[in-house]
């Protein structure tokens, strides 16, 4: 099946404005593992028939990693340039699969002149399910399977999004098993605050291994994530425990795409 991935430039050339801009993010564009999530989400959007577009080559880092590492100049350079592009296309609504992009565009761009309705893909998928646009077939691949959800800090504590991802998982008819440290007490994967881009400081353990152990201990066969960096960290953590054949780390969009036979 052929999927459409229109860019804003193409849309603008046709004089059209899409309903949503899908902000792919750097991980969604370059990380081999997360590109699959990007494609899964695009397949869902295609299936539902939402009018969307991406920025394609015009997209650039939101600046979040620079800002969290202290480089405010670089962040603001990125943010200002992005806002010019977004405002230039008259963007109203942004959906993204990255909690870091989500947090930055939603909470930090307004002060710099970028005001959009920003929705994380977990919330967006939940809305699609609630509106009946994605009709979750009962008896799908994940029916009755144990799934645990790892809260991304930038969705959870940073933006109080705890329920939307869980509702998506419940729609799969899966058995949601919680880790002890979940929701407001969720334990970080270890990647936030730009840790993704450097080795951790010395300690007796890596954060992602600690978290992966907790996730594996739930007995779940799937660890659901909603963040590219959580996905990398937990996948590595599961691998370090030699459990990668028993426990899969999957994004919410992949779970839905699989369930819908969109693989």
């Amino acid at each position: 099946m052929e999927y459409k991935v229109p860019t804003m430039a193409e849309m603008a050339a046709e004089g059209k404005e899409p309903e949503i801009l899908f902000w792919v993010g750097c991980a969604g564009s370059f990380d081999d593992r997360y590109k699959n999530v990007t494609r899964a989400f695009v397949k869902i959007l295609n299936k539902v028939g939402i009018s969307f577009a991406v920025l394609g080559p015009e997209e650039a880092c939101t600046g979040d990693p620079a800002r969290r590492a202290g480089n405010e100049f670089l962040f603001q350079m990125q943010a200002t340039a992005n806002i010019q592009v977004l405002n230039g296309y008259n963007i109203k609504k942004v959906v993204t699969a990255c909690p870091h992009c989500f947090n930055t565009i939603k909470n930090e761009y307004p002060e710099l002149g970028g005001n959009y309705e920003v929705i994380h893909h977990s919330t967006y998928l939940q809305q699609l399910i609630n509106d009946g646009k994605v009709s979750m077939k009962g008896g799908g691949e994940f029916k009755g399977k144990k799934i645990t959800y790892h809260d991304s800090c930038y969705l959870g504590r940073a933006n109080q999004i705890y329920e939307a991802p869980r509702e998506v998982l419940e729609a799969l008819d899966a058995e949601l098993v919680e880790m002890k440290r979940c929701k407001t007490k969720g334990f970080c994967c270890g990647a936030g605050g730009s840790q993704m881009w450097k080795e951790p400081e010395p300690g007796f353990k890596d954060v992602n291994v600690d978290r992966a152990e907790e996730a594996i201990d739930t007995g779940a066969t799937t660890i659901a994530t909603a963040c590219p960096f959580c996905m990398t960290m937990l996948s590595d953590g599961v691998k370090s425990k030699n459990k990668e054949n028993d426990v899969k780390v999957l994004d919410l969009a992949e779970l839905i795409a699989k369930n819908e036979g969109l693989d």
Binding site: Y3, V5, R39, G56
Partner: peptide
């Protein structure tokens, strides 16, 4: 930056 949109190649 020119590789940024390559993820979509396989979909098209």
């Amino acid at each position: 930056p020119s590789d940024r949109f390559n993820w979509a190649d396989s979909l098209k």
